[in-house]
Each structure stands twice: as structure tokens, then as C-alpha cells.
């Protein structure tokens, strides 16, 4: 059969499509002090699963001469790893990184490109998606494949994670996605996996247009209690000033703020501005840790919209426990000490 007859059987469009097919799942990796970041490893594990379902390869992308990290990507599921090198790719900058990755994508034609939903991924993915007129699913908490369509199924959070939506792009390729770190299961490394690490060199990359001046030492102003994401609250049960200080330290470690109940205010442990409840502030943090608070209704009315409530109290019948995601019957001060110690230990 000659090509023309084949073409007339299949139809010209399909031939063209077959030639220009997008294939393979790429993972753009990130590296920290100890090799690949845990999120990157998890991403590779997921990519491997999806690639198996679609019958395609997993390819890893790293910037710079990262041989060891490249090998690590193979052990977590990549078949090939491209180390993109060139002037301007030493430390992160948008313009050269986007250009290098775009050229790589143009030549490699992946069907799916995965990033971590970190600042790194967030800087690159949208620009690349725009360049390729391609879809991008951000902050995914799960990925899957629609085998019939050969399409990525992305589960993205809505309303700040109150529910999720599953999105799919039936036709446009490549499909870009950023995945929330810590949502995918930790994969297993197989040190005997076979794969290749290739160095790819790019010249004439555009220069960076944004200059990083350095860290901002003053830090940001603390948000008011009403907008704090994390609150550690002390009640009478925290015992004494020492306990309050432990709570304050825990709040700091968790990036949150100290607050208290009426009992704490009466003891002089907190100021009026830190009072939570009917006579004080109404808050809606993602996390509220109530230490030694009984759960009086005046207090509870102030925290009705907490997303995760943890209560620590020595009284197993404390009113607060039925409202808590986790109730701990123990001495608040002792638990605070243990929490601070555990967090200081860097776990």
C-alpha cells in the first residue's frame, strides 16, 4: 500500500495528527538540600502510575548540572531526565527558565507537564501555558487519567478547599498542572530502575528582568486576630504565666497568634484585644488550639467558623470536646511543652 492510499483511507487530518502527536508525561523537578524535594518525588510516583495507564514514558526536567538528582528522578519513576543547562540557568529567573523549558517542550511535545504548586512552579507554569495556548490546572490535590480521551483529570480546590472540581481538557495539548505539595502519597524509590540522564544545553537565553534584592528582614505586619489563619487560645486551665508563654511560643512556631478566653483575661494573661468570644472577637482560623478552655458558650460563639479545632483539657467532660476535631484529655501546659519540644526538634 502506498502512502497516498493509506492517507485516503485514514483521512488526511488523522495522519497529520499522528505525526504531530503529544506524548509522555513530564515532571519539572525541584531540589532542596537533600536531593529531590518530597513533593517532586511524589509527583514522579503519580506520573509513573499515569504513564503506565497510558502506555507512555515519564521524563524528568531539572535545571542545572544535577547528576545525582537526575539519577534520583529515575529511581522514582522517570525514564529519561533532561538536565537543562546554559547561561542564566544557574539560579532561578523567569525569563531564561521559561525560554529553556519552552524550547524543550516544543521539541519533546509532552502531553502532560507537571510542576509542584510552589512559587517555582507558579512562576513557570502559567507563562508556559499561555505560550502554548494550553490549559493549566493549578493547586491540584489529585490527578487521574481519562484513558478513552487520553486526557488528564485534574482535581482542583474551590472556595479555598471547601469543595473540589474535576477538570479535563479533551483536546488541547500539552496539559499543564501544578500539584499541591503533600497531597500525593509518598512513592517508593527503586534504585535499580534503568533510565538515562541527558544534558541539554541552551544558548542565547533571554536575561532576567526582575532583580532579587534579598530577603525582607522586617517581615510582614501581623494580620489582626480576625484574619489569622492559626490561633492558639489559652483558658484558665493553662495554669500560669509559664503556660501562657508556652502557648505564645507555639503560636509563633505555627505562624499564628495568641488569644484567650474570659478566664485568661480575668487572670491578666491576655489583653482585651486578644479576647475571643461574645464579649471579644469572632475569628475564623484554619486552626484553633484551645488550651485549658472549658468551652463555655460565650467562647464557642467566637469560634463557630473554625476549620480545625483542637482542644486540650484535663476534664474529659469539658463542654468543648463535642465541638473539637481532636480532643485531648491531658494537662494543657504539659502538652504545650511537648509540642514546642517536638517542633523545635525540627520534626
Amino acid at each position: 500500500m502506498d502512502l497516498d492510499f493509506l492517507q485516503s483511507l485514514m483521512g488526511g487530518e488523522e495522519m497529520a495528527a499522528a505525526e504531530a502527536a503529544y506524548q509522555d508525561i513530564w515532571v519539572v523537578g525541584e531540589v532542596s538540600g537533600e536531593g529531590l524535594t518530597p513533593a517532586t518525588r511524589a509527583l514522579l510516583g503519580k506520573a509513573r502510575d499515569m504513564a503506565n495507564a497510558l502506555g507512555v514514558y515519564v521524563k524528568g526536567i531539572l535545571f542545572g548540572a544535577q547528576e545525582a538528582a537526575g539519577s534520583e528522578m529515575i529511581s522514582y519513576g522517570a525514564d529519561t531526565v533532561y538536565l537543562l543547562e546554559g547561561v542564566g540557568l544557574g539560579s532561578f529567573a523567569v525569563e531564561p527558565y521559561v525560554e529553556a523549558l519552552a524550547r524543550q517542550i516544543e521539541s519533546g511535545r509532552p502531553e502532560i507537564v507537571l510542576f509542584n504548586a510552589t512559587s517555582f512552579g507558579g512562576e513557570l507554569a502559567p507563562r508556559l501555558a499561555a505560550r502554548f495556548r494550553a490549559p493549566l490546572f493549578t493547586h491540584c490535590i489529585d490527578l487521574g487519567v481519562d484513558e478513552a480521551l487520553r486526557a488528564l483529570l485534574a482535581t482542583v480546590p474551590r472556595l479555598g478547599g471547601e469543595y473540589y472540581e474535576i477538570l479535563v481538557s479533551p483536546t488541547l495539548r500539552p496539559q499543564f498542572a501544578t500539584v499541591e505539595p503533600g497531597v500525593l502519597p509518598a512513592p517508593f524509590a527503586d534504585p535499580y530502575r534503568y533510565g538515562s540522564v541527558e544534558h541539554v544545553s541552551y544558548d542565547d537565553l533571554p536575561p532576567a528582568r526582575v532583580e532579587v534584592l534579598g530577603p525582607f528582614p522586617e517581615g510582614l505586619p501581623e494580620p489582626p486576630l480576625s484574619r489569622s489563619r492559626v490561633i492558639v487560645c489559652v483558658g484558665r486551665g493553662v495554669g500560669d504565666e509559664e503556660g501562657v508563654e508556652l502557648a505564645r511560643r507555639l503560636a509563633e512556631r505555627l505562624g499564628g497568634r495568641l488569644a484567650g478566653t474570659r478566664g485568661a483575661l480575668d487572670e491578666g494573661w491576655i489583653s482585651e484585644e486578644q479576647l475571643i468570644g461574645m464579649a471579644g472577637q469572632t475569628v475564623r482560623p484554619a486552626l484553633y488550639i484551645a488550651c485549658g478552655a472549658a468551652g463555655a458558650i460565650q467562647h464557642m460563639l467566637g469560634i463557630a467558623r473554625t476549620e480545625c479545632l483542637i482542644a486540650i483539657n484535663t476534664d474529659p467532660k469539658a463542654e468543648i470536646f463535642p465541638y473539637a476535631d481532636l480532643g485531648v484529655v491531658a494537662d494543657a501546659k504539659a502538652v504545650l511543652e511537648a509540642l514546642n519540644a517536638a517542633l523545635a526538634g525540627g520534626s
Binding site: R158, D325, G327
Partner: peptide, 20 residues
Amino acid sequence: NIESRGQVFPPERELGNVIE
């Protein structure tokens, strides 16, 4: 070019779990 395949809801908050 993007379609929704529906909504997924996180599990209900389980309250009242007490440990000692």
C-alpha cells in the same frame, strides 16, 4: 476547551474524637 467532570466534596468533619 476545558470541561468540568463534576464536584467532589471532602469528608464531613468528624467531631468529638477524644484521646487520652
